[in-house]
Amino acid sequence: MSAPTVRLWHLYPREMNIYADRGNIAVLRTRLHRRELDLELREVGPGEGPPDDGADLVYLGGGQDRDQLTVAADLAATKAAALRGLLEGGAVGLFVCGGYQLAGHSYRTAAGETVGGLGVLDVETVAGDGRLIGDIVLASELAGGSEAGRLVGYENHAGRTTLGDGAKALGRVLKGHGNNGRDRSEGAVVNRTLGTYLHGPLLPKNPWLADLLLGWALEHRYGRGFDLEPLDDRLELAAHRAALARANRRR
């Protein structure tokens, strides 16, 4: 018997990786390994169709503007239909920064060009004047509103994202800018697809979110709930606390 295994598609790891997306992947893999579970990683690049043996978790990170435009075209041409089917069928999606923008309906660049997205999140993004940059802290409904449900990270984006009726925010902004700097919302959740501007990267300092995603992914693969055993998260929690303190100090 091989260990229960999460199948992860990492989309465009070469083109979309500027905010240390590698760290998020390392956290997903390591937190499975620490529980003697496994990760099967498929890196999917431009021109490649989706692997035909399915996925439980899909990850897309952030890129430079030029790469993001190239990726948007490639997504539409080679992967969009399969990804939509997968995510609507209950697979887990994590879309960060530029990946978040591409998961929405559309993104309008500073030059006024509108680029279509995957449409798996009911959000729209328009490039704004100036970038929204800095430490950010959210209170997230996903954790039932407890203190442990804080999400900490760093944001750096020119896009202003607005939520449609079909998406909930990933969290309420306690410190920082969030989706658009106006409505205190940050990120988006539709079914088990998450989009967010938080990086730094996102998962190392927010281990509860990593475990939530992994639990969902295992459930998708095996059709039953998994009780993930708790890990020794002293370093993670120290880093989380330090990030909270820093955000409170700086603003």
């Binding site: 760290g23 390392a26 390591t30 730094g200 190392p204 300092k205 370093l235 880093a239 820093r246």
Partner: peptide, 12 residues
Amino acid sequence: DRCWDLALRFSY
């Protein structure tokens, strides 16, 4: 300032 981030980088 970011010693705990380094700790996570090394640990992961």
